[in-house]
């Protein structure tokens, strides 16, 4: 029995070692997002609290903690409280399989990609539950919109993942990174990378696809009735999801923790730093897009997902398969 407790203790320690940096970096990333947004618009952005305004998000979080949580009288209380918890938990749980370097991974499972895909597709429940349980018009409309949007874009993300898997021959995230040792997949699969990036924007409800919370039409979408810490949890979950999508993009296309070129002075930089740099690069693009692109109309969003991305990624899938088959480059597998 003592042995189990010891193992449990070690695991908890490892989990905290992943979770705490993620929560801190979510706070930093919110600051970065607002800062980039400000700089694009020739404003300064948050720059008062702490050096360069770095502590702005912590101050915000403190404010949210001390605010009152209001639960509407007509809301379905259990589901209403559960919704932000589900969002936050799912966003954090996915980080268990993300490899930051060859050794630094919490759970190195065989079906890592499928796990990531499954968890990110569960993310829609937090939003639907919140929207429905609020028992109010705008949250419900927002929830319905986001359900349709996320399900549509998941389909094309799935096909993009199949594209990568065809080249790798394994569902393990580490092996996906190792397979890119010679050539990052962003080069042969560049169109897929672009589509993945845009689908990730839609999947995380970021601008220009932030229709579930379009403030001109829906007040704040599914978050309208939420206040205090519950709102903050939605918010944290959303940004953790964005970071997760960036991590997924850098593993699938940008070679994970591998350095740009494997020569002497560059490969001295430790692997996790490379991974973080790649995640930050993708996040910087996310933040830029938020500042420079106007919001899509809903029918345009659906058209883009179903009529352009889906057929194109299917076509590219056939193209990749035929190329690999013709040049006899299909992965043989380890058996």
């Amino acid at each position: 029995m003592f042995e189990y407790i010891q193992i449990l203790g070690q695991e908890v320690y490892k989990i905290l070692f992943v979770l705490v940096p993620i929560l801190v970096s979510v706070a930093m990333i919110v600051w970065l997002d607002r800062r980039v947004w400000g700089l694009v618009q020739k404003r300064k952005g948050p720059n008062v609290v702490g050096p360069f305004g770095l502590l702005q998000t912590l101050a915000d979080a403190l404010k949210y903690i001390f605010k009152e949580i209001i639960i509407p009288a007509s809301a379905n209380k259990a589901v209403f409280v559960l919704a932000p918890i589900v969002t936050m938990t799912l966003a954090l749980v996915a980080w268990a399989v993300i490899p930051m370097s060859e050794e630094f991974v919490l759970a190195d499972i065989n079906v890592g990609v499928l796990y990531l895909f499954a968890v990110s597709s569960l993310g829609v429940y937090g939003i639907i539950m919140g929207g429905w349980a609020s028992n109010s018009k705008y949250p419900f409309l927002g929830a319905i919109r986001s359900a349709a949007q996320m399900v549509s874009y998941e389909v094309s993300i799935g096909i993009i993942i199949i594209n990568v898997l065809l080249c790798v021959g394994s569902l393990n995230l580490k092996e996906i990174v190792f397979a890119q040792k010679d050539l990052w997949y962003v080069i042969p699969l560049f169109p897929m990378f672009v589509i993945f990036f845009i689908s990730a924007l839609a999947e995380t409800n970021r601008p220009p696809f932030d229709l579930p919370e379009a403030e001109a039409e829906l007040v704040a979408g599914y978050q309208t009735e939420y206040s205090g810490m519950m709102y903050a949890m939605f918010w944290l979950g959303e940004y953790a999801n964005i970071l997760l999508m960036c991590a997924m993009g850098s593993i699938l296309f940008l070679g994970g923790w591998l350095p740009i070129i494997d020569i002497y002075p560059i490969n001295l930089i430790p692997a996790p730093i490379w991974m973080i740099l790649k995640i930050l690069f993708l996040f910087f693009l996310f933040a830029l897009i938020k500042a420079i692109v106007p919001r899509y109309r809903y029918d345009q969003l659906m058209r883009l997902g179903w009529k352009i991305f889906l057929p194109f990624s299917l076509f590219y899938l056939v193209l990749t398969a035929s190329f690999l088959f013709y040049f006899d480059k299909l992965p043989k597998g380890n058996f």
Partner: peptide, 26 residues
């Protein structure tokens, strides 16, 4: 059977049940 488990999560929970919920709520 990790593959089957994940596929159940993706297909049933991630897609089928969402549409279920969608219809029932509407």
């Amino acid at each position: 059977a990790e593959f089957l488990g994940m596929i159940i999560l993706i297909v049933y929970v991630g897609a089928v049940a969402v549409l279920f919920l969608f219809v029932v709520m509407m």
